[in-house]
């Protein structure tokens, strides 16, 4: 049974490598019962979208204003 600290680590790893079935089940079970970790997972998605948005702004043709008005969707 995962605790919250382990669950955050696993959610981070899920951003970097595919989790195996057992890992996904354990995480799913924890998330089903834990609103805090469900929020954490959403925040990781926002973070990734923000990183992409940052890059889009850097590469935008019009000083980033175009990218700013259209944040890219998640990976």
């Amino acid at each position: 049974m995962l605790n919250c600290k382990q669950a955050t680590r696993r959610m981070s790893e899920a951003e970097d490598r595919p989790l195996d079935l057992g890992e996904r089940l354990e995480l799913g079970l924890h998330l089903a019962m834990c609103q805090g970790c469900r929020n954490y997972r959403r925040h990781l998605r926002v973070l990734r979208t923000a990183c992409r948005g940052y890059r889009e702004q850097l590469l935008g043709g019009e000083a980033g204003e175009a990218a700013r008005s259209e944040p890219p969707s998640g990976r």
Binding site: K5, Q6, G36, Y40, V46
Partner: peptide, 24 residues
């Protein structure tokens, strides 16, 4: 985290209101 590695109530990740709007 508390000793059992579950969130301290004061530090539990909050619900972020409309993050998509923030990015703009």
């Amino acid at each position: 985290f508390r000793e059992n590695a579950h969130w301290q109530p004061a530090h539990r990740p909050a619900q972020w209101l409309d993050p998509e709007a923030s990015l703009q």
